[in-house]
Each structure stands twice: as structure tokens, then as C-alpha cells.
Write a protein that binds this DNA or RNA. Structure first.
Lengths: 226, 226
DNA sequence: TAAATAGTGTCTGTAAGACACTATTTT
DNA sequence: AAAATAGTGTCTTACAGACACTATTTA
């Protein structure tokens, strides 16, 4: 029995922190199916192109985000037979975390693009295809990985203060960690952040030391959320 | 520009515990490419078939494992353009953890099947395609998830003793948890195991209480490995 | 009885969370 | 000075790990 060829796409859950909220990048579809509806950025894998290269290419095309060296990891693959009315399309989803790149520029195959707070999107049916589900999975992955990795630092521009890093946890988890305990944990966790010699007063009050992302990927000990 | 159709396969990393060792199910390929080489069980996704259904079907076909109600989760997707000499094949890998089902029965498209200790397989180039890489990722996923989920119980038959559960951690992590502290942690972790009223002396010594898998998926607190 | 495994109690060190207190800026 | 944010120290509680001790079986 001959195997059946299928179309393979890459869809992106691109998250950032804007004005204290976790937001996702969406594009408004210009063509059927779901024309006019919001969707995750994505596109088909080209011949000879590795999956992650498709993700990187789409990141650049859809929002000029490539230059920001985002954190990029594979999320999951969605292949329900009826997820795309055009036929059998298997979608490999990637999760990207980037510092806020500002308002997006519309790409070639997107009539419009915008950042939207993730709060209500996951539950809604406003997104095309099964993208609400994919977005929800991506947000949940990000939430979970903040706990035991240094991923939070990927959502804000360098250099950053400890308080700016704390605001990432506040936005993503919806809880306000104690600023004093948070400070102690971050600066004592091995390799989470490395200090620069500069300070800033952009937050008001006493000057805060500026930090860059440290070499650690896994955090020991982890940042716990209750 | 028209997107290029590709073949989509599902490959399985099936792990179990046999004679104190973590072992993976392998099949010997009967056809080219890589004829005669060991590979992960797997097959192409059929039209109208969901990815996870392909995984379940292959589990049944390749080793009659379906009846064991294995833990099954998606692992990752591998789509390097040159990973299969026949052409472009994207493979969605699933991780299955099962209680030891005994020696496998050869399936239809496998000349032979066998359990192999994972210790050296990951590093070797003896497996077909990129299956050594996939196996390594699966084992690493299992190792990591033992820490904060109740997955260990999926590798042994029910009902089990606390000591049998401890042997799972010993085999997968390569460390021997203290039996006394382990006992306290397992029985006090919320929903990890539920006790039956039966006991057994199959381990020798004082009769040990028998347990079944509890309702918990995430463990609070987690089982730490140093 | 000895040997083996099952299970409980106790101690110590580490770290999370609560929060008092000091430090350095702007208004 | 007052207000704001940055950063340190201290206390309490929880729990991981070490390990003494008791419990219940087989040989």
C-alpha cells in the first residue's frame, strides 16, 4: 500500500511582553479558507528546507523578527485529518519568545498583523483552523518553562533590571512575586543573569543594576509558582 | 507557488523496564533502505487517520501492546530534508511507556523485533535513519518527566510495591534513592499512588503493601534527582 | 536465631516566603 | 523632607537527605 503525501506547514506561536501583558503575534488571513480571520503566522515547508528553517524564515517574513535572535523551540505537531478544509495538512508548531519588536509590518501573504493579549484568545473560537488550541498549548508551555529555565529573560530587551525581569513573571503567571525574595533568588541562581557595571533609573527611585542573560538554560533552584 | 506534498510517518519510542534496565522496542527492517538494520517501530500516516491513531495502531501491530493501555505522548517531529533517502519524509515521534509485555511478536512489516537496553543505543550509529537521535530524545524526555510527574508507575505492572517503583527510578536515573526517604515521599505525595488492601512477599522479607497508580499527573512536591 | 525487606521517627541543612530594615535616587 | 524603587538581613516553616530504629516475614 502506497503512503499518502500530505502538506506540511509550520505555524508560529510568537510571544512577547507589551505594556505588562503577554501578547501573541497574529496575522489576518487574506485568502480562503478563513479569509479575514486572525490566525497564527505560518506557511508551508519548502522542498529541501528543514522545519526549523521554515520557522526562522516565517519569523523574518511575517514580522521582521529574525534580527532579534528569538528563543525558538518546537512546540508540537497537529495533524487531525479535518483541521484544514483544503485537505490533509500537518502543521508543526514552533514557539518563539522575543523582546517586544514594536508594531509589526504586514508580510506578503498577510493582509494585516497585530499583537494581541493572550488572556482571552485561547478560549475563543475567533482564530482560524485549530490555532486557538495551538496558541493555548504554546502559552502553557511558556508558563511551565519559566519555572525551571531562564526563558523569562528572552521576553525583554537587554540589558534589563531585576524588576523588569520580575514583571515578566507577574505578567505570565498572573502573580506578583515578592520583589525582595525575587531579587535574592535571581541573583543567587547560578548563571541566570550576569551583571553589567551599568545602572539605570528608568524605573524611578534608586538606580537599579542592569543585567544580561546568563549562560544557564536550566535553573537550579527553579522559580516556583506556589 | 504551490506547496510540496511530503510523506508523514509516525515513529515510536517504546520504553519499558526489564530485569532492572530501561529498554526500548526495536524492529529489524526487512526492506530497503537500511534493510537488516534495527529501527524504531513506525509507519506512515494513513488518509483520514489522526497522528495519535497512527501511533496507537503501530503499537498494536508491532508488538501487541495496545491492550496494556500504555502512556502515550507526542515527543517531537523530525523533518530534516535528507533524513530519508527515499525522499522527503517528516516523522512525528511518539513516546510510549508500558509495563513489560514480554518478548515481542514480529509484526507484518518487521522481520524481527526485540527489546534492547537504551544505555549504549543513543550514542551508536547502529539504528536506521535518525532513530538514534529520536531514541535519545525520548529517553531524555522520560528521564526528565519522572521528576515531576507520576510517569514512573506506567513502566511497571499494577499492583506494585513501593520498592518496585523505586527500582524504576534507579534504572532510569542510574541513582539509588534512599529506600526509607523514597517510601515517605511516594506515600505522602498527593495522588501519586493509592494503596490497596493487599500485600505481597514476592520481594522477600516483611510483606509489602501493594499500590495502584494514583490520579495525580503532576507531582507535588516533585521527586528530585540531586 | 539470622537475614532480608518494609516502614517510621528524628536530626540537620537548605531554601522559600514573610517582612523589617537600609540605600539611593527624584520631586 | 517625602515618595519611590533597589537591595540586604532575619525569622519561620517545609522539606530533602542521612540514618537510627522498629516491624514482619523467610530460611
Amino acid at each position: 500500500m502506497q503512503p499518502t503525501p500530505m502538506l506540511v506547514a509550520v505555524d508560529l506561536v510568537v510571544l512577547t511582553l507589551r505594556s505588562g501583558e503577554l501578547e501573541a503575534l497574529l496575522v489576518r488571513r487574506g485568502v480562503e479558507p478563513y479569509a479575514g480571520r486572525w490566525a497564527l503566522p505560518g506557511g508551508f515547508v519548502e522542498p529541501g528546507e528543514d522545519l526549523v528553517d521554515t520557522a526562522v524564515r516565517e519569523l523574518g517574513e511575517e514580522a521582521g523578527i529574525g534580527r532579534l535572535r528569538p528563543h525558538l523551540e518546537q512546540l508540537a505537531t497537529y495533524g487531525s485529518p479535518d483541521r484544514d478544509p483544503r485537505g490533509r495538512v500537518v502543521s508543526v508548531a514552533y514557539l518563539a519568545l522575543v523582546p517586544d519588536p514594536g508594531d509589526p509590518v504586514a508580510g506578503s501573504d498577510a493582509a494585516d498583523a497585530a499583537w494581541r493579549a493572550v488572556g482571552t484568545l485561547g478560549r475563543s473560537r475567533s482564530l482560524a483552523f485549530d490555532h486557538a488550541r495551538i496558541l493555548r498549548d504554546g502559552v502553557e508551555r511558556a508558563r511551565a518553562k519559566l519555572e525551571y529555565t531562564s526563558l523569562a529573560a528572552a521576553l525583554i530587551p537587554e540589558p534589563f533590571t531585576v524588576n523588569e525581569l520580575r514583571e515578566v513573571y507577574a505578567a505570565v503567571w498572573g502573580v506578583e512575586p515578592d520583589p525582595r525574595n525575587f531579587h535574592r533568588k535571581v541573583t543567587s541562581a547560578d548563571g541566570f543573569v550576569v551583571e553589567t557595571h551599568a545602572t539605570t533609573t528608568r524605573g524611578g527611585g534608586r538606580p537599579a543594576r542592569l543585567y544580561r542573560r546568563g549562560p544557564a538554560v536550566q535553573l537550579h533552584p527553579p522559580m516556583l509558582r506556589g
